[in-house]
């Protein structure tokens, strides 16, 4: 047993908190991620993570709970992106990029002020790359509450969102109001990004959002099955990542653990690569599809 799980893993409270928050966050990210991927909004999703970086660093500066900063500013960011037209395909990447650039600039400023005005160290590292082992157990209820809000919102708009994604014209003809539905999705996305920023760091949270969903969509054909697969992949990657990070403390003699986020991101990436293998095997047995 000790080859896999180092001593104290199951009795450590930080580990319990990390597993709980990581698991909950992985579920929300995977569910929201499915729609992010099929709507082709990976870039928008990633941009929100950088917006939430600015939020987290601002919250740190003001002495607030970083989660509120993460979620608060990514909500503002999603509203801004909707305003300058990320719903339209044309010019969407550009508008997104501008928001992205400006928010990174803000993050740079806030992080600088964090390190110079507040005599705390570790803000940059904690905000950008997360520190799931140092989370306060008191965060758990807040995380769960926001997760429920995000999932409920997603459930409410599920069908019109799906229709709007598949064919905006058909959806509009059937009375779906595209803009509110798109905006509602962006808000759910913002909350989910804020949550995963807390877990694995703001600039890495894209991994939990996109990775499991993209892998699941390559493995299954139906949306429902993809949702379940994505959730399973996300939770597995997070938990194994937490375990490996915990174990890594005992690797070598320096007792300098590896970052949790690295393991989660690396696992997610490997799963995505592996998910392409069945498809590739099928592709070699049958000729390429028609252009």
């Amino acid at each position: 047993m000790h080859f896999i799980v180092e001593p104290g893993f199951f009795s450590s409270q930080p580990v319990h908190v990390a597993l709980t928050i990581g698991g909950v966050v992985a579920v929300v990210s995977a569910a929201v991620g499915i729609f992010t991927v099929i709507r082709g909004q990976s870039f928008a999703g990633h941009t929100l993570t950088d917006v939430s970086t600015a939020g987290g660093s601002a919250a740190f500066l003001l002495g607030m709970n970083p989660l509120l900063g993460f979620i608060g500013l990514s909500l503002v960011g999603s509203g801004t992106m909707d305003l300058i037209g990320v719903q339209r395909v044309r010019g969407r990447d550009l508008a997104t990029g501008i928001v992205l650039g400006a928010s990174i600039g803000l993050a740079a400023l806030f992080l600088y002020l964090d390190t110079t005005t507040r005599a705390t160290t570790g803000a940059t590292q904690q905000i950008l790359f997360g520190s799931i082992f140092t989370l306060d157990p008191g965060e758990v209820p807040i995380v769960v509450a926001f997760s429920v809000i995000s999932l409920v919102a997603l459930a409410v708009i599920y069908r019109p969102l799906l229709l709007a994604t598949m064919s905006p014209d058909i959806a509009a003809a059937r009375g779906v109001r595209l803009r509110p539905v798109g905006l509602a999705f962006m808000l759910a996305l913002a909350v989910s990004v804020g949550l995963s920023s807390l877990a694995i760091g703001s600039i890495l949270s894209t991994a939990l959002l996109i990775g499991p969903a993209a892998a699941a969509l390559r493995l299954t054909k139906r949306i429902g099955a993809a949702l379940i697969t994505a959730v399973a992949i996300g939770v597995a990657a997070t938990w194994v990542g937490v375990l490996l990070a915990y174990d890594s403390y005992y690797w070598g003699s320096s007792h300098n653990g590896y970052p949790v986020s690295f393991f989660i991101v690396a696992l997610t990436f490997l799963i995505y690569l592996a998910s392409g293998l069945p498809a590739r095997r099928a592709a070699t047995s049958a000729p390429a599809k028609r252009h």
């Binding site: 950008l128 790359f129 890495l204 894209t206 991994a207 996109i210 390559r218 300098n256 990436f269 392409g276």
Partner: peptide
């Protein structure tokens, strides 16, 4: 070329960032 372009880009991006964080943590 094979997968979805934006998905691959997003994942490559975070992988690189995570690697950077790993190296710096050492």
């Amino acid at each position: 070329r094979r997968g979805r372009h934006d998905v691959v880009t997003a994942l490559a991006l975070v992988l690189m960032l995570a690697l950077g964080a790993l190296f710096l943590s050492r």
